[in-house]
């Protein structure tokens, strides 16, 4: 489907991904205080949602670009409307790409440290914060550290291995086809 100024929109989406999250966090936190969310998991979740969206758009776009147009056209000649063609032909075919995008976004959010460092405290700390806290300046809680590190690093590694064929595409937002 032709979308006017397709390249410009794409460029804009990409550039939102380039901006450092902390720089975006400053005005967002001001906004969270205004609407009364303040610090906490809600703000963290919303922030992550906003930051991972351009990532997902770009990865999935890369996979859709790889499908020949004629598949969608063929479905439409065969009796589909645009939505049906999307659902019955396009979506099943990009499903692995969508999964890869989801996993990449998951890994990003799981690993992220700096946003959680400010937005969460105490009981709402995410794992990276808890891991970091278990190493004090003068003492190390070895048992807690070991457990926390394992729990923290295992899911990303397992997921990465699951999507290893799409990992490069995901990490480069579809710029490189692995």
């Amino acid at each position: 489907m032709d979308v006017p100024r397709k390249t410009d929109v794409g460029f804009w989406i990409l550039s939102t991904r380039m901006a450092p999250p902390l720089a975006i966090l400053i005005p967002l936190v001001g906004f969270y205080f205004t609407v009364g969310i303040g610090q906490g998991l809600v703000g963290l979740t919303v922030t992550h949602l906003l930051i991972t969206l351009p990532l997902i758009i770009w990865i999935v776009k890369g996979f859709i670009d790889e499908l020949p147009d004629s598949l969608e056209e063929s479905a439409m000649v065969d009796g589909c409307n645009r939505i049906q063609a999307l659902r019955t032909v396009v979506f099943p075919l990009v499903a692995p790409g969508v999964a890869a995008a989801a996993f990449i976004a998951f890994i990003f959010s799981w690993n992220n440290y700096v946003l959680a460092l400010y937005l969460t405290t105490g009981a709402s700390s995410t794992l990276p914060i808890a891991v970091s806290n278990s190493v004090g300046t003068y003492s190390i809680q070895w048992g807690q550290l070991g457990a926390a590190v394992i729990v923290t690093i295992l899911p990303p590694i397992v997921l990465s291995l699951l999507i290893r064929n799409y990992l490069v595409a995901g990490m480069t937002m579809g710029a490189v086809k692995g």
């Binding site: 020949p68 004629s70 063929s74 000649v77 065969d78």
Partner: peptide, 18 residues
């Protein structure tokens, strides 16, 4: 719309649904 024209098309790359 294409679907309302009741025609069938064969594409150069066959466009089979993989």
């Amino acid at each position: 719309e294409p679907r309302d024209r009741d025609v069938a098309m064969v594409f150069q790359n066959y466009a089979l649904y993989p």
